[in-house]
Write a protein that binds this DNA or RNA. Sequence first.
DNA 1: CTGAAAGCGCTTACAG
DNA 2: CTGAAAGCGCTTACAG
Lengths: 365, 365
Amino acid sequence: MVGEQRQATMADVAREAGVSVSTVSRALRGVATVSPEARSRVERAAKELSFSLSRSASSLVTGKTRRVAVLMPGLQRAPWFLGTALTAMAEVLGEAELDLLVYVVNNKSERAAFFDRLPARRNADALMVISFILTAEERERLDDLGVPVVFVSQHTAGRASVYIDDAEGAHKGIQHLLNLGHRRIAHMQSAVVESFSWSAHDRLAGYRQALEEAGLPYDDALVMSTEYSRQGIREGVGSLLSLPQMPTAVFVETDEMAFEVLSILRSCGIDVPGRMSVLGFDDHSLAEALNLSTVAQSPWRTGHIAAELVSSILADPSSDPTPHVVLPTHLVPRGSTAPPPRAEQGEAAAAALQAPPSAASAGNS
Amino acid sequence: MVGEQRQATMADVAREAGVSVSTVSRALRGVATVSPEARSRVERAAKELSFSLSRSASSLVTGKTRRVAVLMPGLQRAPWFLGTALTAMAEVLGEAELDLLVYVVNNKSERAAFFDRLPARRNADALMVISFILTAEERERLDDLGVPVVFVSQHTAGRASVYIDDAEGAHKGIQHLLNLGHRRIAHMQSAVVESFSWSAHDRLAGYRQALEEAGLPYDDALVMSTEYSRQGIREGVGSLLSLPQMPTAVFVETDEMAFEVLSILRSCGIDVPGRMSVLGFDDHSLAEALNLSTVAQSPWRTGHIAAELVSSILADPSSDPTPHVVLPTHLVPRGSTAPPPRAEQGEAAAAALQAPPSAASAGNS
DNA sequence: CTGAAAGCGCTTACAG
DNA sequence: CTGAAAGCGCTTACAG
């Protein structure tokens, strides 16, 4: 079934083509100084023998692996974002004939193992690190990795970074809610798990700043850090709904969390956006279907640009190894945001909580 | 910033530890025949010099790369499924100290390039292929790859395969709808794009068989092949809604498509499940939030088992290289499926189409 | 238990 | 334009 015959080597190709191994090597790499006839003989022989190059052998002499590693948190956490970025990276690297080595780190011990053994060290020409909050020691380890490192969806001074301005994006989103007339705006974010970051910190900062600029007080009670699970989010929503003065809008850290919020609000009869506006962040592929207003970013562009950065650094060592590329975000207003209810906010909130779900939704109690 | 000093080699470690390179190699691989003192001197020296092994060099002599390749369609197509499976694979392989090489193929030309060059050939010890419908030629190419191949989310006689019984899963789903009393059940699937498969074929087969067993005629008009896009799905739903006799339930090939269907039905005021039941397939992480009834499968288990299969084949060449592992599916009934409306189906459908959306939804016109 | 030597399959000066 | 030779950093018989 499976052909277990020995793989053809350059020596085999050389014999078949009647030239030396050196010539085979040069012809296959497209070096100019090879006669057309020798080249075509080599190509024919290579095809005939199904020759394929051993990168191990070439790596050994060139010192280059033609491989780029990417370190990322478990994809199940943010499959849409990470999956899309990864696909974009693979596309760009594939064009440059660079292979993509993926290291997924799911928990603390896997993380420790990665930074301890640093398997990327001699097995990749560059490393991309996505969405991690690194400790000082971890950053140091990366610094003497010996290969270029590009930070993606995160940034550090003096290191190549490709990211969005999360604070600014959040600021735009909050400004939208303010422009609609909202004054009590809540924020929900996931409690950061073992320093796997989704930019929670900067989005919160943007929220705070936008409120401040509008002259609104920052209210701790309006900011929830929930566990990243349906149950955690439900509890967060519960906290909002049980505040003495209910907010009229909530800005949620990610679309994936916002989908849960929408579902929970709907299930308890709080009309969105009639009683509560919901704003997400990401512009997830399902945001349109769920009519979720959100702040858009593009993981595709992020991955593309990070990979291009890597391949240009590898192709041209004289290029700037530490650029910062800041990608744009923009507001995508949809049906989940609208002006707050006419009634005094406090009263509206109280009403929503008293009335039975279906009646509250139909509004005819 | 970046330490560009030469990476330490075994020769450096040997010098530092005062032993030969052979001993370093043996000590580091944990070969038994090394004296405890030699071993500890080597370990200390290795740590001190931040030595890490060049896999290229060891590969060259052992013929093993300690790398497993996975070939998959662009993750943006089914990010949840593929991302989760990939994460599971990475976890299992990481434990076995195997690296994961990812080849993403987005379109026809990338696909041709992959099978032409077969970059995995000498650069991985095994290959996992996810969700592809392969042509005969492609399968042949894989057969003389020279390394074990495991098919994931797809299967072929005589080749190692890890998959679910899509037909059976679909059958269970349709049976659920039949049990609820539905008799006109539509099916929506995505038109297969360039032979990247999502098991569309087998799910359709399960649909047909369940209907047949129930003595219901197969009606071509109830089966839609739509483009995999919001617009395509909208057109598909439009076709269903404009049939002379509207179906009372629709079985959608994947949850991600079903989410769009739910959204479209809601936007045109067709109550789910009052007027139309919707059943998905996958049990996507958002299915619960959206209250979608579905047939569950586990990409996590799929990835886990595929990777375990690979690492056991690599660890023990005498193990069966062509097992078929069929993973279970099960129905997850939620709020999007219910008995069909009381009224005769045809009339109900007509009514739903005449009435203005909001009124139809409130049901009080 | 340890070391010297050969060799894995390439690339790269170096000669011609 | 081409080939013989050295060497990349390991592992593995083979001797001791």
